[in-house]
Design a binder for these strands. Structure first.
Length: 211
DNA sequence: CCAGACGTTGTT
DNA sequence: GTCTGG
DNA sequence: CCAGACGTTGTT
DNA sequence: GTCTGG
């Protein structure tokens, strides 16, 4: 299996879920961007790349999956773009020790009238912690190892029993590195995408030009 | 009742 | 500006 | 998320 | 399928 450096929405992602019969953990491949079972068109996936953890339990697209279709999506890093003026600077965010971690995810199963099927997933987000705030106002929810079982447990269905997991990661969980804008194009899926570049200049802090 | 949406991020 | 595709 | 398209008629 | 808006 080839390593990926730039996974785009609608592309395949690996995940762990509880088998619906045995309850045992199993590997699944989902396309990124949720296609709810009731969707008329799979193109809705583009609007459902992320789910706000604060409201997922009551949103039509996420309510069912939040109760019955939770998963863990492994990664060893992700990108966020920092807006600097009109520009966007991409950052690669990973653990200091390069170890992988798991996003909190939701999945669903969609069947079209013509018989084709899509298994898809979305990533829950929460407020940025102090570490992430300079880059972005939101961040993905990370599930710690001690909580994998609870997050995947199909018997746990009440939102209140999961709310304590939907928190920003600890401040020292991640480090970040500015990276090349190569990552801006989904055509560029290569190791260079995660190679650190020089820190970009700080945005000007002088105000009052009166535009 | 039926029709239409069902979402997030970021920017102004 | 907004939508679609990857 | 960003990049790239954004359209029709007619022909293969 | 379920909720919201009219």
């Amino acid at each position: 299996m080839k390593a990926r450096y730039n996974i785009a929405p609608t592309q395949p992602i690996a995940a762990v879920r509880a088998n619906e019969n045995s309850g045992n953990r199993e590997l699944a491949i989902f396309s990124w961007g949720l296609v709810p079972f009731w969707a008329k068109e799979p193109s809705i996936a583009h609007q459902l790349l992320n789910a706000r953890s604060e409201t997922a339990a009551v949103k039509p697209a996420f309510r069912g999956p939040m109760r019955h279709h939770r998963c863990l999506i492994p990664a060893d890093g992700f990108y966020e773009w920092k807006a600097i003026g009109g520009q966007k600077q991409p950052y690669y965010i990973r653990r200091p020790d390069h170890e992988p971690f798991y996003f909190a995810g939701l999945f669903d199963h969609w069947g079209s009238p013509d018989g084709s099927e899509i298994e898809s997933a979305t990533i829950l987000t929460t407020a940025a912690n102090d570490f992430m705030t300079p880059i972005h106002k939101r961040m993905p929810v990370i599930i710690p190892e001690s909580q994998y079982d609870r997050w995947l447990d199909p018997k746990v269905q009440q939102p209140a029993k999961l709310a304590d997991l939907l928190r920003p990661a600890p401040e020292d969980f991640f480090i970040r590195k500015p990276v090349t804008p190569l990552v801006n194009s989904v055509r560029n899926d290569m190791p260079e995408c995660i190679m650190p570049t020089v820190e970009p200049p700080s945005p000007p802090n002088q105000l009052g030009f009166g535009f």
